[in-house]
Amino acid sequence: VLKALERTRQLDIPDEKTMPVLMKLLEEAGGNWSYIKLDNYTALVDAIYSVED
């Protein structure tokens, strides 16, 4: 979780936006981090930006 938060902080995305999206992605992935961690957490960042749209 810390590495995911560090990555999104680099992009000026607050933890308050990151955590709900991260928890949803983890739930959808059955707790499997490998998809979320791919390409420096690209799936997480993309999911956060899609929620903002």
Results as ranks from 00 to 15, higher is better:
Pro14Cys: 07
Lys17Ser: 07
Asn32Ala: 08
Leu11Trp: 06
Gly30Ile: 07
Asp53Pro: 12
Ile36Asn: 02
Val1Phe: 13
Tyr35Leu: 13
Lys3His: 12
Met23Leu: 14
Leu11Asn: 06
Thr42Arg: 15
Gly31His: 09
Lys24Asp: 05
Asn40Lys: 05
Ser50Tyr: 10
Thr42Lys: 15
Ala29Gly: 07
Lys17Arg: 12
Glu27His: 14
Ala4Ile: 05
Asp39Arg: 08
Glu27Leu: 10
Ser50Asp: 10
Val45Gly: 01
Met23Phe: 09
Thr8Phe: 08
Ile48Ala: 02
Asp46Glu: 15
Arg9Leu: 05
Val1Ser: 03
Asn32Leu: 06
Ser34Lys: 11
Pro20Leu: 12
Thr42Ser: 15
Glu16Asp: 11
Glu27Phe: 10
Gly30Tyr: 08
Glu52Trp: 14
Lys37His: 11
Asp46Val: 12
Gln10Cys: 11
Ala29Glu: 08
Glu28His: 09
Leu11Arg: 01
Val21Met: 07
Val1Leu: 13
Thr8Pro: 05
Lys37Pro: 07
Asp39Leu: 07
Leu26Gly: 01
Arg9Thr: 06
Leu38Trp: 11
Tyr49Trp: 11
Asp39Gly: 11
Ile48Thr: 03
Asp12Ile: 05
Leu2Trp: 12
Ser34Gly: 12
Leu44Cys: 01
Tyr41Arg: 00
Ala43Arg: 12
Leu11Met: 08
Leu38Met: 14
Gln10Ala: 14
Leu38Ala: 15
Trp33Gly: 01
Thr42Asn: 10
Arg7Ser: 06
Asp15Val: 04
Lys17Gly: 02
Gln10Pro: 03
Ile36Pro: 01
Pro20Ser: 12
Asn32Tyr: 06
Tyr35Ile: 12
Met19Leu: 13
Ala29Leu: 11
Asp39Pro: 01
Ala47Arg: 09
Leu38Ile: 09
Leu38Arg: 14
Leu26Asn: 00
Arg7Lys: 07
Ile13Tyr: 03
Leu2Arg: 11
Val45Tyr: 02
Tyr49His: 11
Thr18Asp: 03
Lys37Gly: 09
Gly31Cys: 09
Gln10Gly: 11
Leu2Gly: 09
Leu25Val: 03
Gly30Glu: 12
Tyr41Ser: 00
Arg9Trp: 06
Thr42Asp: 07
Gln10Met: 11
Tyr49Pro: 03
Lys24Trp: 08
Thr42Gln: 15
Asp53Ala: 13
Lys37Tyr: 13
Asp12Pro: 04
Leu38Lys: 15
Ala43Cys: 07
Ile48Pro: 00
Trp33Ser: 00
Asp15Asn: 04
Val21Tyr: 05
Met23Arg: 10
Ala4Cys: 09
Glu52Val: 12
Asp15Glu: 03
Trp33Ile: 03
Val21Gln: 04
Asp12His: 14
Ala29Met: 14
Lys37Val: 15
Ala47Gly: 05
Arg7Trp: 12
Asp46Tyr: 11
Met19Glu: 01
Asn40Thr: 02
Thr8Arg: 02
Leu38Ser: 12
Asp46Asn: 14
Val1Asp: 04
Met19Lys: 04
Pro20Gln: 09
Val21Arg: 01
Leu22Thr: 01
Ser34Gln: 14
Pro20Cys: 10
Lys3Asp: 15
Leu25Met: 14
Tyr35Gln: 13
Leu44Trp: 03
Val51Ile: 13
Ser50Cys: 08
Lys17Glu: 07
Arg9Ala: 05
